[in-house]
Amino acid sequence: MQRIGMVIKLNADKVAEYKRLHADVWPEVLDMIKQCNIRNYTIFLREPENLLFSYYEYTGDDYAADQAKMAAHPKTQEWWSVCMPCQKPLDTAKDGEWWIEMEDVFHLD
């Protein structure tokens, strides 16, 4: 199992919309997340800084292939097109980075 943590900013004027969207995530998107071997997926919000932190556990054996499968899924693409305008990359993001993966420095089971 691989633990993944990522961070991004949330536009201040989109906080309520983002919370509303995630209170009722589309079933097709949830199913695709599971099909791509992602478990224990959680998104945290830190206000007033409006930082989003996501955490999930990857249980598959080909992370790149599962991420490509998810990215190719039409309903997931539609979901991302609704959510992405709510978000903005950190100032330190590299070209093409959206959610920025974080280093796993400590874990206690």
Rank of each mutant, 00 (worst) to 15 (best):
M1F: 04
M1S: 13
Q2H: 10
R3A: 02
R3D: 07
I4T: 07
G5D: 01
G5M: 15
V7Q: 15
I8D: 02
N11T: 02
A12Y: 04
D13T: 09
K14W: 02
K14L: 03
K14V: 06
V15T: 11
V15F: 04
A16I: 04
A16H: 09
E17D: 15
Y18K: 07
K19N: 07
R20T: 14
R20M: 09
R20S: 14
R20W: 01
A23D: 14
D24T: 09
D24Q: 14
V25Y: 00
V25F: 03
W26V: 08
P27G: 01
P27W: 01
P27L: 03
P27R: 06
E28D: 13
E28R: 03
V29L: 08
L30Q: 10
D31R: 15
D31L: 11
D31H: 09
D31M: 06
M32P: 00
Q35C: 04
Q35G: 00
I38N: 09
N40T: 05
N40H: 13
Y41N: 02
Y41D: 02
I43H: 04
I43A: 03
I43P: 01
L45C: 12
L45M: 12
L45N: 10
R46N: 14
R46D: 12
E47Q: 15
P48D: 05
P48T: 03
E49M: 07
N50Q: 11
Y55K: 06
Y56Q: 07
Y58P: 06
T59Y: 00
T59F: 03
G60M: 04
G60V: 08
D61L: 02
D61M: 03
D62S: 12
Y63H: 09
Y63T: 01
Y63R: 11
A64S: 07
D66N: 08
D66L: 03
D66F: 04
Q67G: 00
A68F: 06
A68N: 12
A68K: 15
K69A: 15
K69G: 01
M70A: 14
M70F: 13
H73N: 15
H73Y: 07
K75G: 00
K75H: 08
K75Q: 11
T76M: 14
Q77I: 12
E78Y: 09
E78Q: 14
W79Y: 08
W79N: 03
W80A: 08
W80R: 10
W80N: 10
W80E: 04
S81K: 10
V82I: 15
V82E: 06
V82S: 02
C83I: 15
P85S: 11
Q87E: 15
Q87D: 05
Q87C: 05
P89F: 00
P89K: 14
P89M: 05
D91L: 09
D91N: 11
T92F: 12
A93I: 06
A93T: 08
A93N: 10
A93F: 01
K94G: 08
K94L: 13
E97F: 05
E97G: 06
W98Y: 08
W98C: 07
W99P: 08
W99D: 03
W99I: 02
I100S: 12
E101D: 11
E101Q: 14
E101N: 12
E103S: 08
E103P: 01
E103L: 10
V105D: 01
V105K: 06
F106K: 02
H107W: 08
H107K: 12
L108S: 12
L108V: 09
